[in-house]
Amino acid sequence: MAQVDAAFLRRWLGRVSEAVGREAGRLTELDSAIGDADHGHNLRRGFDAVAAGLENEPPATPGAVLAFAGRTLISTVGGAAGPLYGTLLRRAGKALGEEREVPDERLGEALRTGVDAVGQLGGAKAGDKTMLDALLPAVAALPDYAAAAQAAREGAEATVALRARKGRASYLGERSEGHMDPGAASSALLFAALAEVAAGE
């Protein structure tokens, strides 16, 4: 299997920043249906700060790249996505340790650890119509990046039919049905970007 280094993860997060910038309007629109209409713009602010920081002072190890990105998201997003994605990346970064290169499988394990931490922080489970509905199937498919991107996309699509059980959308009850969860939609972008960067290697 291939090795993952800091440059690979910097390319990933740079591509996420581009995708979130491109899709911010759609994410905020999804969030205005069942949330508080800030998801896309909050995430764009966060990932812009991640991309800028990685460019100015590129960390040398994969673990440090993810830990930096996680800390930055926690401090810049301003909505629930900040601590959730921030915890995912920070915990994944910690799990990667200080090696300069890790095999794909190790990145997969680290991201699974990060997603578990998201579940603990938010208290959500699969089927609650949250980002976990995209994240859990995605990390289960790693280290196959293309399969992970597809699983995340399908997981996000499947949230349309679900009733929200966490967050502000849960107050809507059955009126939350029929809309894609914005967090699941942005999670699908994360894994689509990972697959694109991996395919370009």
Binding site: R71, I74, G78, G79, A80, A81, G82, P83, L84, G86, T87, R90, K94, A117, L121, G122, G167, R168
Partner: peptide
Amino acid sequence: LGSAVLTVQALLAEHAE
């Protein structure tokens, strides 16, 4: 509620580590 609670929890987790 919501992000206010999650942000404090995330900061405390980082702090503990």
